[in-house]
């Protein structure tokens, strides 16, 4: 059963999910490499949690316009808007306090607002809200061909953009002052990186859900850092780990009943990290 799934013979839907998860894993791994090099790992956590109010608002807006509220691009647009607002809020607050505190405050209050909106939607009984909370932990069970295509092309686009921007991104992460002297605008590069991470988060909502997407960004990246001494190498290894975990995680969860996809992918990535630590970790740790 598992072998069939791994070889893409577990049925059309299972194959679709495996390939989609692999592409998502690759783009998350690559984006996460730059994110952790810039020391902004937890920013993605705030961003992911801040998508929730947007999903609720988009749902309400679409129901008000007469739909059933389940139109995926609409939900993702809403998610993107509040995630961007959350990011802006973190940056605004970080002028007055440590970035850590700003991140946590935004994460909690945006997420709280999202939950309030979800209870409002349930109370109103409008549209077809059932299953809206799958964005919390993701769900690949009902993944359609269109969803897999969105994930695949989204992941591919993110990876290409990272490839093109890898040098200025690396310069800003290594030494922002020098990057500025060399004519790179660190703010623009940070904004570009955050936009790419946001794209990964949005795409990942369908697979791992908003609580665990941060693992797909960070865990392969910190493992990859211990295997490579260059930025390109780190990003490539990270993408490879992400792709493998996505692929195998989806295949395993498809063949074992009740095993949710997102958490399995995260546990596989954690396994790779533990192995890496044992082999390449600092002895004095």
């Amino acid at each position: 059963m598992i072998w069939q799934a791994l070889l893409l013979q577990g049925g059309y839907n299972a194959a679709l999910v495996s390939i989609g998860a692999a592409l998502l894993g690759a783009s998350a791994g690559a984006a996460g490499a730059f994110l952790t090099l810039r020391r902004r790992a937890l920013m993605s956590d705030a961003m992911a949690h801040a998508t929730l109010p947007g999903i609720g608002l988009a749902f309400l807006a679409m129901v008000a316009l007469g739909g059933d509220g389940r139109f995926l691009p609409g939900l993702m647009l809403g998610a993107a808007l509040t995630a961007a607002a959350g990011l802006w809020a973190v940056q605004r607050l970080a002028r007055q306090m440590h970035e850590d505190a700003a991140t946590g405050a935004v994460l909690a209050s945006f997420y709280g607002a999202g939950i309030v909106l979800l209870t409002l939607i349930q109370g109103l009984g409008a549209g077809r809200p059932a299953g809206l909370e799958t964005v919390l932990l993701g769900s690949t069970a009902g993944m359609l061909r269109a969803d897999a295509l969105v994930i695949g092309f989204g992941g591919l686009a993110v990876t290409c953009a990272l490839w093109a921007l890898s040098r200025p991104l690396a310069m800003v992460a290594f030494d922002p002052l020098h990057a500025r002297m060399m004519g790179v605008n660190p703010r623009q590069m940070d904004a570009a990186l955050m936009a790419l991470v946001l794209a990964v988060v949005l795409v990942g909502l369908n697979v791992t859900g908003l609580i665990l997407i941060v693992a797909l960004l960070v865990t392969p990246a910190v493992s990859a850092r211990m295997w490579s001494t260059t930025v390109t190498g780190t990003a490539s290894v990270s993408a490879l780990i992400g792709a493998a975990c996505g692929y195998f995680g989806a295949a395993i969860s498809a063949s074992v009943p009740d095993l949710p996809t997102g958490p399995v992918i995260v546990l596989l990535a954690a396994g790779v990290f533990v192995l890496t630590l044992l082999i390449r970790g600092r002895a004095d740790g």
């Binding site: 790992a41 937890l42 960070v218 600092r282």
Partner: peptide, 11 residues
């Protein structure tokens, strides 16, 4: 792993 605490926390 010699990484920032935030990343370690996330992992």
């Amino acid at each position: 792993a010699g990484i920032e605490p935030g990343a370690a926390m996330a992992v």
